[in-house]
């Protein structure tokens, strides 16, 4: 059942209008990642194409199982294999295809030109190494920074991520930091080699709201300062509204809508985006206002519905939606949607 979906990749990449192709730092085309279990194949990422401009912050928004994290992991080929496998697609970073690189070439990109920040600030740091050792590692590996300069560089990084009293904290171990401080250390590690692209996978999900605001402000300032691009992966639409230039909404392994933050929030064209925005609890809502949930459950990716993956939950579904999977096409300019329906009707 799933094999058919795999063998007929959606050709979303064709005529895909990019802001300015020459200016794109990262260009992802028709990416397919599957997870296999026995004869079952889960199409975690099912034909995803997008690009990230220089200095741009692109948010990938979706619920659990939408494939947003798998997409990010696939870019750097960090998918555990088996069971995962990237079966199709191209990822051009500055003109070079990351999916064609040898493991050695790729390693010189990871952590150097592209860095990642993970969700778990508690476990993403190695508990037996001091902050100094962990910060120095990427510099030694990628930049061959001279030993005598490493300390100064580490201190500089800790100052950049606004860790108070960096001299004292340099030789501390991860357990001596709070969750927010650990995430700052993670960011410092990611910034060690001044990457051109930062991939932040739910960087604040495990943190308190006040700390979340601090970390996101910090990421915004730092990316602006260094002129680096960022892919921000999150399930939180609120975060996206404040920090993203452009947004990709993912559902069931596909991008269903793509546009600027204003386009997505003020003029959502995909019923899923509409539903997502309507179902969000908001601070500026009426008191005890009733939420409008998206009925039903997310699909089983090992056995996805025919046609548009969202049609069983879609209030606008037409007969066509049950049969044909809609391609991601321009609605207006760079605002793209993958839907057969005009939600205004």
């Amino acid at each position: 059942m799933s094999d058919t979906a795999v063998s007929q990749p959606l050709d979303q990449s064709e005529e895909m209008p990019v802001t300015d192709p020459a200016d794109a730092l990262l260009q992802v085309e028709n990416l397919h990642t599957v997870f296999r279990q026995g004869r079952r194949a889960i199409n975690a990422v099912n034909g995803v194409s997008f690009s990230v401009g220089r200095g741009e912050t692109l948010a990938i928004v979706g619920e659990s199982g939408s494939g947003k994290s798998v997409t990010a992991m696939s870019l750097l080929r960090l998918i555990p294999s088996p069971p995962g496998e990237i079966i199709d697609g191209d990822v051009y970073f500055d003109g070079r295809n990351l999916l064609d690189m040898s493991e050695d070439e790729l390693r010189s990109v990871r952590g150097n030109e592209i860095a990642m920040i993970f969700q778990e600030p508690m476990t993403s740091l190695n508990p037996v190494l001091s902050v100094r050792q962990q910060l120095a590692e990427p510099m030694r590996v990628h930049r061959k920074v001279k030993e005598e300069n490493i300390e100064a560089r580490c201190l500089d990084l800790l100052r950049q991520v606004r860790i108070p009293d960096p001299e004292a904290r340099l030789d501390a171990y991860p357990h001596q930091f709070s969750g927010g401080m650990r995430q700052r250390v993670m960011i410092a590690m990611a910034l060690a080699c001044e990457p051109r692209l930062l991939i932040a996978d739910e960087p604040t999900t495990a943190l308190d709201v006040t700390v979340q605001a601090q970390i996101l402000e910090l990421l915004k300032d730092l990316t602006r300062q260094h002129g680096s691009s960022m892919i921000l992966i999150t399930h939180d639409l609120g975060v996206v509204a404040r920090y993203a230039d452009r947004i990709n909404v993912m559902y069931a392994g596909q991008i269903v809508e793509s546009g600027t933050a204003l386009e997505i929030f003020e003029n959502p064209r995909h019923p899923y985006t509409l539903g997502l925005i309507a179902s969000m609890p908001r601070l500026d809502a009426e008191e005890k206002a009733r939420l409008k949930p998206i009925e039903g459950q997310p699909p089983d990716l090992g056995n996805p519905p025919a046609g548009c993956a969202f049609h069983p939950r879609c209030p606008f579904a037409k007969p066509q939606c049950r049969e044909q999977d809609p391609p991601l096409e321009p609605y207006r300019g760079n605002h793209l949607k993958a839907c057969w329906v005009n939600v205004d009707e």
Partner: peptide, 15 residues
């Protein structure tokens, strides 16, 4: 007040 201000609102204009 701080807590309320830290919660993002899903509305880019308001944000």
């Amino acid at each position: 007040q701080a807590l309320l201000s830290a919660i993002p609102i899903p509305d880019p204009r308001a944000e």
